[in-house]
């Protein structure tokens, strides 16, 4: 079924999604990988100090997941607001 196009509602939904994803982006790279790296290094996951793991591995995995979520949710928004 095709809905009535609603550009401004679509744009607001897009901005909300972006804000959430960029917040996660900031927390995983800057907060966990840089600002809190020293306290986090006190904890270990397997052979990794946790902060070091975020800086050298985890943040990259998170980046991939963020874009995956963005592309998938935007596909849904495109259809819901009839702008695709």
């Amino acid at each position: 079924m095709s809905n009535q196009p609603d550009p401004s509602a679509y744009w607001r939904a897009n901005l909300r999604l972006m804000a959430v994803l960029l917040a996660v982006w900031f927390v995983c790279s800057y907060v966990l990988g840089i600002f809190l790296v020293e306290p986090l290094n006190g904890a270990r996951v397997g052979g990794f100090p946790l902060g070091f793991w975020f800086a050298h591995q985890g943040s990259i995995y998170v980046f991939v997941v963020l874009i995956l979520v963005y592309a998938a949710v935007m596909d849904r928004l495109d259809r819901r607001y009839g702008v695709d």
Binding site: W25, S29, S59, I60, F63
Partner: peptide
């Protein structure tokens, strides 16, 4: 991080 985070 610098050369991957930019893709987000």
């Amino acid at each position: 991080m610098g050369w991957t985070g930019g893709y987000v």
